[in-house]
Design a protein around this nucleic acid. Structure first.
Length: 877
RNA sequence: GCCCCGGUGGCGGAACUGGUAGACGCAACGGACUUAAAAUCCGUCGGUCGCAAGGCCAUGCCGGUUCGAUUCCGGCCCGGGGCACCA
């Protein structure tokens, strides 16, 4: 064995072995110890791997290798989320077609993944931009159309009036188009939608079937779906409104607070509401306000933070009970997409309505009083709305009722009048999948002047996206490509126009995990999906906690209802990994302009107290500003290239750093010193094995079964106990807790313990050998290359990846006595050693025998003594 | 604005079900080895008082529950993720 650890050679040899033996090609098999489908979110092929990918895929790889060694058949596939906006942006910048840019990136990034030694089954690789994949997007879309799940309606998009193009939210900066700087407008266009709301109830209810999902993700999903039980209430048009609208209608609202109905002092509708539009047509000033509301972005965050503005329409509706006139306003905080696009304004009992009423000098009426009288009287000037539940007042026949009783009574009375009823409102909206973009999956529809919208027949699938086009920023190039859009109506044969919108890329990623189970199937999926599904472990960024996961769950349920698969939920266990952060350094050469410097080129200056004092740029020794920690990004120039890292330290060091530095769910701060520390540790491990096998007697003559346990000294027993305890802990940390950082830490402790046993007796060498084998095995999921080599060096013929994971020797774990802590009145006062089997009385007696404990008991009577077995005694005096 | 999460030494973190706060690592400091440097090895390392034994303070802030709170509850401050066309 060579004394020096050289990662490049070790990693090449291990990777060659895995490749040649096809170790990671998954085989469906009935006789294994079960199956394990381990999936990491597939990457967008942006050009190069970033550290977030390395972290994500290392976590998946650790679990994959661990479960393989448990004797399961394991599937860990990899592919490419290959459609999307960045390819079009790159095309505009470089003049290269998105297809070429994307495929080049895939080739490069695949090389990077291989370099990191991930146990992927590359025989199942898929790219969503391949027609063999996306044809099934189209096929399933047609099935959804048949079932009424896919349908067409208008939706609002960001419109750049200069480039004459639809903008993504990302392309809207401060309400202006990113390229033109023009004020963005909202525009209504026809789009295809998927009726995810039909599954709202099930998507919410089935969260309970997911005990192995993080609670926070389930909470976020539940809030996103947003089930509200409330009332629909109709406010009949007053005569003027009736004349305006031309019929005897009513303004409908949805509210969860029907108990506050008598506190309504105004109504507010969205700018896109029919009543607003009709009123605006007769009033130039109002029309100008509506136009203003329709400028700006469509993003909810922008809408919610903008100044709340409103204007009178001049029209009124009638209160369903009192018949009083209520003025209708147009307000920019009312969303057309939620509920009815209209709300009743109750300033006394809603914070937002309160703010609006103050600003517009609208009356505020109290109709709820606090049960505890804390807010009994809301005489003006009020400090705030009283938004809590209470008892109705000033509500005619409904006075004196608590929340639920008031809602029940009011809803019943409304229903009798035909002016409302109880109903459930979901926050969740149907999923608009149409994108006015080129680099995506074509929507398989044809528009015929005579027959209307006609689905492309199954036999004509896939509708293939022409790959040579280069977008120029002014709309979808498919609209300028007659060979694509010129078509014939499948029904009547007349000339017709093919749909040029493509699908949201979330469609592609909503079922890729199913295709991985049978990547070469001639149908969308085949029976292999039944073998592998559900995914046993899904790993990805917390930023996907809502949309991607919700869409995938929805898509899975649709496919289940089409009898294509059998599972209700796609992902059994979910791990949401944190982001990778690094320091941000910049200079501001001119106001508003910032030049960012890579942390690798910056030196941090420490003060005498070891605190960071400042930083300088190494090239000119001049100070740079520190902007804290942020996610690694191109724009902040704080990324670290995985390939450079692997070349310098090896893949194992990169993986080790990722696993040891932070728990997987938390953010991870990059640290050059931390990387070096990881490298140092691997080198120490290498050296320990080297010393073991290069000191006579030769290591391969030692077999753990042969040694005589009666020869073990206390020190030997201690090391064996530590070794087997480490094995037990690592098994639990990886298998159950997914706490990789503590697993690594415990192996470090084991290695420290091995180093402390310095005598060269035969028994010591045998015990150390076993301890090193355990250390190597425990680390192998994290640092597979070096452990592959060290396992052989420790005398094993079988490759480590083919070894069955060991179970701890119960005999080694036995402990005769243990140290417990002693508290007096909850304060730590001493530590005493007791027999492992000691009773409470014995433990308390041992505690009281301690001098320091006596000092604090000080002769006072003992009121109570608490013994927590094997841990502590608390004496209460 | 709304939803979710987090805050522990100089730093990353540990403490798993309410039971020894600071495992493990990084940085720093002291020492050994070396012509020297690097590497390696040994030691110290939350604050404070004390010669020591040991005491007191300390897990963002304020309050509560408990024999006992980093952990549970209420209120606040700060940081991060998501908000439907970035993926």
């Amino acid at each position: 064995m060579q004394e020096r650890y050289e990662p490049a050679a070790v990693e090449r040899a291990a990777q060659t072995f895995w490749d040649e033996q096809r170790v990671f090609e998954a085989r469906e098999s009935a006789d294994a110890a079960g199956k394990f489908y381990c999936l990491s979110m597939f990457p967008y092929p942006s050009g190069r791997l970033h550290m977030g990918h390395v972290r994500n895929y290392t976590i998946g790889d650790v679990l994959t290798r661990f479960h393989m060694m448990q004797g399961k058949t394991v599937l860990q596939p990899m592919g490419w989320d290959a459609f999307g906006l960045p390819a079009e942006n790159a095309a505009m910048k470089n003049g290269v077609p998105p297809a070429k840019w994307t495929r080049d990136n895939i080739a490069y990034m695949k090389g990077q993944l291989k370099q990191l030694g991930f146990a992927f089954d590359w025989s199942r690789e898929i790219a969503t931009c391949d027609p063999s994949y996306y044809r099934w997007n189209q096929w399933l879309f047609l099935r959804m159309l048949e079932k009424g799940i896919a349908y067409r309606k208008t939706g609002i998009v960001n419109w750049d009036p200069v480039d004459q193009t639809v903008l993504a939210n990302e392309q809207v900066i401060d309400g202006r188009g990113w390229r033109t700087g023009a004020l963005v407008e909202k525009r209504e266009i026809p789009m295809y939608y998927l009726a995810i709301t039909k599954y709202a109830d099930e998507l919410l209810g089935d969260l309970e079937q997911l005990p192995d999902w993080p609670e926070r993700v389930k909470t976020m999903q539940a809030n996103w779906i947003g089930k509200s039980e409330g009332c629909e209430i109709a406010f009949p048009y007053a005569p003027d409104t009736r004349a305006l609208m031309g019929h005897d209608g009513a303004l409908k609202v949805f509210t969860t607070r029907a108990d506050t109905l008598f506190g309504v002092t105004y109504m507010a509708v969205a700018a896109e509401h029919p009543l607003a539009l009709a009123a605006g047509a007769k009033n130039a000033e109002l029309q100008a306000f509506i136009d203003e509301c329709r400028r700006g972005s469509t993003m909810e965050a922008d809408i919610a933070t903008q100044e709340k503005k409103g204007m009178r329409t001049g029209f009124s509706v009638l209160h369903p009970f009192t018949g009083k006139f209520v003025e209708v306003w147009v307000a920019n905080y009312v969303l057309m997409g939620y509920g009815e696009g209209a709300v009743m304004g109750v300033p006394g009992h809603d914070a937002r309505d309160y703010e609006f009423a103050l600003k517009n000098e609208l009356p505020i009426v109290q109709v709820i009083k606090s049960k505890t009288d804390a807010f009994a009287n809301l005489d003006p000037p009020w400090q705030d709305a009283f938004a809590e539940y209470g008892v109705t007042v000033n509500s005619n026949e409904f006075n004196g009722l608590e929340f639920q009783a008031a809602v029940d009574a009011i809803a019943a009375a409304l229903e009798k009048k035909g002016l409302g009823k109880k109903r459930v409102q979901w926050r969740l909206r149907d999923w608009g999948i149409s994108r006015q973009r080129y680099w995506g999956c074509p929507v398989p529809m044809i528009h015929c002047a005579k027959c209307g919208e006609v689905p492309v027949p199954d036999k004509d699938l896939p509708v293939v996206l022409p790959e040579g086009l280069v977008p120029d920023g002014s709309g979808n190039p498919l609209n300028k490509t007659p060979s694509f859009y010129e078509s014939a109506c499948p029904k009547c044969g007349a000339a017709a126009r093919r749909e040029t919108d493509t699908m949201d890329t979330f469609v592609d990623s909503s079922w890729y995990f199913l295709r991985f189970t049978c990547a070469d199937a001639q149908t969308m999926v085949d029976e292999r999906a039944k073998y592998w599904m559900p995914v046993d472990q899904y790993i990805g960024g917390i930023e996907h906690a809502i949309l991607h996961l919700l869409y995938s769950r929805f898509w899975t349920k649709v496919m289940r209802d089409l009898k294509l698969i059998e599972v209700d939920e796609p992902f059994k266990n979910l791990l949401t990994q944190g982001m990778v952060l690094h320091h941000i350094y910049f200079r501001e050469p001119a106001p508003g302009r910032r030049d960012y410097f890579n942390p690798a080129d910056v030196e941090v200056l420490l003060g005498e107290d070891n605190q960071r004092k400042g930083a300088i740029l190494l090239t000119d020794n001049q100070p740079v500003e520190w902007d804290g920690l942020g996610t690694m990004s191109k724009s902040k120039n704080n990324g670290v290239d995985p390939t450079a890292l692997v070349e310098q330290f090896g893949a194992d060091t990169a993986r080790m750093f990722m696993m040891f530095t932070a728990p997987p769910e938390q953010t991870l701060e990059w640290s050059e010193e931390g990387v070096q520390g990881s490298f140092r540790f691997i080198r120490r491990l290498w050296k320990a094995v080297y010393d073991q096998v290069n000191t006579p007697p030769p290591a391969d003559a030692l077999a753990i079964e042969k040694f005589d346990k009666s020869q073990l000294t206390a020190a030997h027993k201690d090391l064996r106990r530590i070794a087997h305890h480490t094995l037990e802990k690592v098994t639990d940390d990886i298998g159950r807790r997914r706490s990789f950082n503590t697993a690594v830490a415990s192996v470090m402790e084991l290695l420290n313990a091995v180093g402390k046993l310095t005598d060269e007796g035969l028994v010591t060498r045998v015990v150390k050998h076993e301890a090193l084998e355990i250390a190597v095995m425990c680390l192998s999921p994290m640092i597979p290359h070096v452990t592959h080599e060290l396992w052989h060096q420790l005398g094993h013929e079988t490759a480590l990846i083919h070894e069955r994971w060991w179970t701890p020797d119960p005999e080694a774990l036995v402990q005769d006595s243990l140290e417990i802590s002693v508290q007096v009145n909850g304060k730590m006062r001493a530590r005493v050693t007791i027999a492992a089997e000691a009773t409470q009385d014995a433990a308390v007696a041992a505690a009281l025998a301690d001098a320091n404990v006596q000092k604090f008991v000080d002769g006072k009577p003992i009121r109570k003594a608490i013994y927590v077995k094997g841990k502590l005694v608390n004496i209460v005096v």
